[in-house]
Design a protein around this nucleic acid. Structure first.
Length: 298
DNA sequence: AACCCCCGCAACCGCGCCGTT
DNA sequence: CAACGGCGCGGTTGCGGGGGT
């Protein structure tokens, strides 16, 4: 019992777009807009294409102000910073890079940037990563949360799907920008899941048959970021800022009528040790209570 | 010159969410 | 409140071009 196909696959052209198809689509949308209905658009525009295909072609290639070509160092830095914090949420990352599409960034990351970065990653950073049973310590009723600061220009993460699912707030503190986001629980959340891995004994992994899966990659990447000078993920040591963060997170939770799990189960000391080691990037203030630390990451 | 392999990118696909009925 | 249709997202695929042998 699969989902019904979105279009008549038999009568729909697939594969690369011809210049004629491009101009038909462009002309139609420039004249009429998308009409809020991609499914019926191809027929109206005289195209034998699936609506989804038209949408993709328009968004990734035909719409105005699309930037193609080399990514700048600044763009690299933004991509790396955001990937380290939110993972492969390409649409959100793309929203911070005017003219770039999520597809572009995804391809760029997978083919070039990741390799570039991993070439900086010492072997030890991939082998010492504690990969243990990724038992989720959050439960389905908890709203995962991540909070981080960067030295980037202020950015505002877009509300995602709906406000109950994702709350985001941006506040500035001196030269730093603090971002608090809550993401709906179905989506992968690298920080949450990375931390969830730390906690328990156990050896089996149900999520990936490979020896170095997605989460390890992100963890390794976060380690790399911490140990390089590419970005500074340090949290401000300002207590007021911390309080603001906590309030913000609490606000998010109260707005959602959600409960923070009473016992998250991971070894906080270990995490602290890990994160605050080396040159102190992504450091956690020793004065912060365990409870606050939990709020901070969840 | 011919073949093979690798890489990059455009496009496809499946799934989850949301709004509407 | 459930069913349905449409949209958007992230992962994956496959084609074409370029470099190496």
């Amino acid at each position: 019992m699969g989902r019904a196909p979105c279009c008549d696959k038999a009568n729909v052209k697939k594969g690369p777009w011809s210049p004629e198809e491009d101009s038909k689509l462009k002309e139609y949308i420039e004249k009429n807009g998308t009409g809020g209905n991609w499914i019926s658009l191809p027929q109206k525009a005289g195209l034998r294409r699936c609506g989804k295909s038209c949408r993709l072609r328009w968004l990734n290639y035909l719409r105005p102000n699309i930037k193609h070509g080399e990514f700048s160092d600044e763009e690299d830095r933004i991509i790396c910073t955001l990937y380290a914090n939110i993972g492969s949420r390409w649409s959100i990352i793309a929203a911070q890079l005017p003219g770039r599409t999520d597809n572009d960034i995804k391809n760029y990351w997978n083919t070039k940037l990741k390799k570039k970065l991993m070439s900086f990653l010492p072997q030890s950073h991939t082998t010492l990563l504690p990969y243990q049973n990724p038992t989720p310590y959050y439960n389905q009723f908890s709203q995962p949360n991540t909070s981080f600061t960067t030295n980037l220009e202020p950015i505002s993460l877009p509300f995602y799907h709906n406000q109950e699912s994702l709350l985001s707030g941006v506040s500035t503190s001196t030269s730093n920008v603090t971002v608090t986001s809550m993401q709906y629980h179905h989506h992968h959340h690298p920080m949450r899941e990375s931390l969830a891995m730390f906690g328990s004994e156990g050896s089996c992994c149900s999520s990936s048959e490979g020896s170095f899966g997605k989460q390890e990659e992100i963890m390794g990447f976060q380690n790399l970021m911490q140990n390089s000078n590419m970005i500074n993920l340090s949290h401000g040591s300002d207590v007021n800022q911390w309080e603001t963060e906590t309030e913000k997170v609490n606000l998010c939770f109260s707005q959602n009528q959600k409960q923070i799990p009473s016992s998250l189960g991971y070894d906080l000391e270990y995490i602290k040790q890990l994160i605050s080691s080396d040159n102190g990037y992504l450091s956690i203030d020793e004065n912060k209570t365990e409870e606050k630390s939990m709020y901070y990451y969840y």
